[in-house]
Design a binder for these strands. Structure first.
Lengths: 325, 325
DNA sequence: TTGAAAGCGCTAACAA
DNA sequence: TTGTTAGCGCTTTCAA
């Protein structure tokens, strides 16, 4: 028999409402009674029924997380961090994989609405007015996507991309390329814009290639296009694409970093496993997650968004520009 | 105002219970009425309140998924498949990352119990009596873990490991090694046992190395131990470890597959991205997920567990044994 | 500070 | 085939 507030109440000789208070709003109950109730509660291994809570109070202790593709290696560390924080506060996480589809994003919101206390959307693809309409007042926060309409946290690639450009200039590079990912990815546009700004400031010539599919094969295609240019270094939209670039260059016997430096974004787990290991731009998944939840729980008029710093992580795949012939 | 069965009932001039039936058990309502109700329902963008359903009927439309570490690349494709299937049946998925801890596994079950219709546990670490006790009747199924107590699905590595041994013998190998992962991983013991059986049958000598941490660095350590042996091929517990083996061998200027063949398990996404690309053993995440849900929804006395076939995927990292000097 | 009572939205007997 | 009536376990007024 599962323990309920009634069984606890009976055992304590108090009313169910007092038990409810002791559990959810302890400050409303006398200290003595509170400890007695709490004691019995865990003696009985009481677990609050979230559904009852949701129905009665409207607060469920669950929040939704939407992700375009949980198999994309950028997301799992963020989800893990979200889950860990949620667990610590006794909350749970409803995961929806939207399969990179704006329609499924919208549908997911519709389904989650009313079942969860709030929503964390990782790199949502849909336009924010549409998202906001679907949310209909459900508190939400976005990660790696900005908007005037909704709170968000993003990695601040600007500083890291500046580091990249400074480093590349220092290594003698003069022309670089950006391998573009999906056009509907906000991060993609933003990374290009920020790389563009950084390149301009350091007087690097920058070419944009693509868009290509944000996949290993997309990266391989990008590498072939890249070889038509005179860039000596390339920044790819993400590490998955960069790994494709690396593979294709390897196959074409182009030396990395001897002939060409390759830099990815996201610093996913496998980047250090590649050979040559992949230089990348790291954001802190734990910070993204922590701030996102912060913004979700304590929405304030002032602080509706945040940036977390990112860092250029040089590895074997980037190095001095090749000597001119 | 969110639509409820009451608002629909009113609009239709029927009783709420009829609406409830039309929605949840359509066969109990006359065709004509049913279509009318359903029409109004989606006109009003009605979404059933899962919490109310859970409270009233005891069935919530949610199921829990526990995973030792969502950032381990083996799991996301399985979770994605689970989520996709769940979505199709209008169900949702509560994700818990147990951080490789048996205590957290047990705690997770306790917290999920009463909130979900069932549980899918990916590679649980805790002993099954303990799991079963914690479940207390909550339907559950395990993936990649066997037990007499609970239903499960596992990849059937036996056939693939047999293929591996046959292939290696055909390539002239006579001595191989197994790089062991965590001792509390059931899959680890099983893979070794099955490799052992396959090796015996093909008259391959097999050494076991480790255990090592199931990580890139664990793989690197394993590679150093490996070089002390006279094995010409190695099977690692998983692809993550295998990638460490590859990296360490590369650093030590050991040719792969020239001097040593390396084979991983799981065929995670990055295996084909490595250079040399990693030979591996692939199980079908979609099948694991599909059968798991099948077993969870339709528990029968006969069919309490299943195996899904796996396949050896040879890539660049495995090849002919080196010539004897 | 505590108790009594109503109700969250739905399902599930039981009647009609 | 449809309506009526009770709850599911909890929170939350309102009174005491």
């Amino acid at each position: 028999m599962k323990a309920t507030i009634y069984s606890i109440a009976e055992r304590c000789g108090v009313s169910p409402s007092t038990v409810s208070r002791a559990l959810s709003r302890p400050e409303l109950v006398s200290a003595e009674l509170r400890t007695r109730i709490l004691g019995i509660a865990d003696e009985l291994a009481y677990r609050p029924n979230r559904h009852a809570r949701g129905l009665a109070g409207g607060t469920t202790g669950m929040f939704g997380v939407t992700v375009p593709d949980i198999a994309n290696p950028f997301f799992p560390p963020v989800v893990r961090a979200l889950e860990k924080l949620a667990w610590q506060e006794g909350r749970s996480l409803l995961l929806v994989d939207t399969a990179e589809s704006v329609d499924r994003e919208e549908a997911a919101i519709g389904r989650l609405r009313g079942q969860v206390d709030g929503l964390v959307m990782l790199s949502p693809r849909a336009e924010s007015p549409r998202l906001q309409a679907a949310l209909g007042g459900l508190p939400a926060v976005m990660i790696n996507r900005a908007s005037r309409l909704l709170p968000y946290v993003t990695g601040d690639d600007a500083s890291a991309l500046q580091q990249v450009c400074d480093t590349l200039v220092g290594l003698g590079h003069t022309t670089i390329a950006y391998v573009s990912g999906p056009v509907d990815s906000w991060m993609n546009g933003r990374r290009f814009a920020q790389l563009h700004a950084a390149a301009k400031q350091t007087e690097l010539k920058l070419a944009s290639l693509g868009p290509f599919a944000a996949s290993y094969d997309g990266g391989r295609a990008a590498a072939r296009a890249l070889l038509e240019t005179d860039a000596t270094a390339v920044v790819a939209f993400d590490d998955v694409m960069a790994s494709g670039v690396l593979a294709e260059l390897g196959e074409q016997h182009v030396q990395v970093p001897g002939d060409l430096s390759v830099i990815g974004c996201d610093d996913v787990a496998f980047s250090r496993m590649l050979r040559p290991s992949l230089s990348s731009i790291a954001s802190a998944p734990d910070d993204l997650a922590g701030i996102a939840l912060e913004l979700l729980h304590h929405p304030t008029a002032e602080r509706r968004h945040a940036q977390v710093p990112t860092e250029f992580v040089p590895r074997e795949s980037s190095g001095p520009a090749p000597k001119r012939h």
